[in-house]
């Protein structure tokens, strides 16, 4: 068995080396397509995280200034408690806000260190009686005029912005990725086919001396799988770059307040990476399986 293992490894790498240019093309295409798949997943996750505050009917959030006066808070609370337009609300004080922030950026201690509870804006998460968009917009406008209010983020606006953005970007990436995944499967099929045609005599002899079909197929399938894995291996660092550069760019942007929540936990980047490796191996296996069943039949 050990001996067979080395036989397969040797045959696989000899073949990889023989078709170097095709091999590189296949590997790079896999890498690019999987980097796109991964980015699309990261952006989705970022959007989910950013919109997580708007749950259970919360339609808008009133952010107070960190240094809002107690009587300014009193005034807001009085409106909230008495207005028939408000169904319920939750007050998130600066400590709770800080806790949430810490949880969100648990993998970015430098970011957590840069803030203190003192500078976190306290907020009211508000469930209106009537979640109609026009009504929410009107309520939000009223609250934004109150003294001590920093800004009002409405779910309809903010979520729509973020979701529009993330849906559009991640769908565009996904479409491109699917096309490229198909292209890379075909490229791998082609590489494996070339490898097969380069070894016609060898395969013929193997069949005639009684090698089993799987014994003949395995090196070729291994070759395709390794192409897929190598491509995925290149895509993984690209994901970390996307996470640390692109998503970080959104987090720093002032244009849309909610983008600041646009972060994905490091754990998610790792689990996405594992998926990418699995998908890469699968592309390689499927591409080469096609090649061997089509071109290697007894």
């Amino acid at each position: 068995m050990i001996f067979r293992f080395w036989y397969f490894i040797r045959e696989t790498f000899v073949s990889l080396w023989r078709n170097l240019s095709l091999t590189l093309a296949a590997i790079l295409t896999v890498a690019i397509s999987l980097a796109l798949v991964g980015s699309s997943l990261l952006i989705r996750e970022g959007a989910d995280q950013a919109t997580a505050q708007f749950q259970e009917g919360v339609e808008f959030i009133v952010f107070m200034n960190a240094d809002a006066l107690e009587n300014q808070n009193e005034a807001i609370r009085k409106v909230l408690d008495t207005s028939p337009a408000i169904k319920e609300y939750v007050y998130v004080d600066k400590f709770a806000a800080y806790e949430e922030f810490r949880e969100l950026f648990v993998d970015k201690p430098e970011l957590v260190e840069s803030v203190t509870p003192e500078i976190m804006p306290p907020s009211y998460r508000i469930v209106p009686s009537d979640p109609d968009a026009d009504n929410v917009t009107e309520l939000a406008r009223q609250f934004s005029e109150q003294p001590g209010v920093k800004e009002v983020a409405t779910a309809t606006e903010a979520i729509r912005q973020i979701e529009d953005f993330s849906t559009r970007v991640s769908q565009a990436l996904l479409v491109a990725a699917i096309v490229l995944v198909a292209v890379s499967a075909v490229l791998i099929l082609n590489t494996v086919f070339t490898a097969i045609s380069g070894r016609k005599t060898e395969i013929e002899v193997m069949k005639l001396v009684g090698a089993t079909n799987w014994f003949i197929r395995i090196p070729f399938m291994l070759e395709g799988t390794i192409h897929g894995l190598m491509g995925a291996g290149l895509a993984v660092p690209a994901l970390f770059v996307v996470d640390s550069k692109v998503l970080a760019y959104f987090q720093e942007s002032e244009a849309v307040p909610l983008f600041r929540g646009f972060a994905v936990p490091d754990g998610f980047v790792w689990s996405t990476s594992i998926w990418i490796l699995v998908i890469g191996a699968a592309i390689g296996m499927i591409g080469s399986a096609f090649a061997v069943t089509r071109y290697l039949d007894v």
Binding site: K207, L208, V209, G210, A211, T212, N213, V298
Partner: peptide
Amino acid sequence: WKVPYLRRQIGY
């Protein structure tokens, strides 16, 4: 799937 085992008994 048995063909390879037949061929192991036959030189060519």
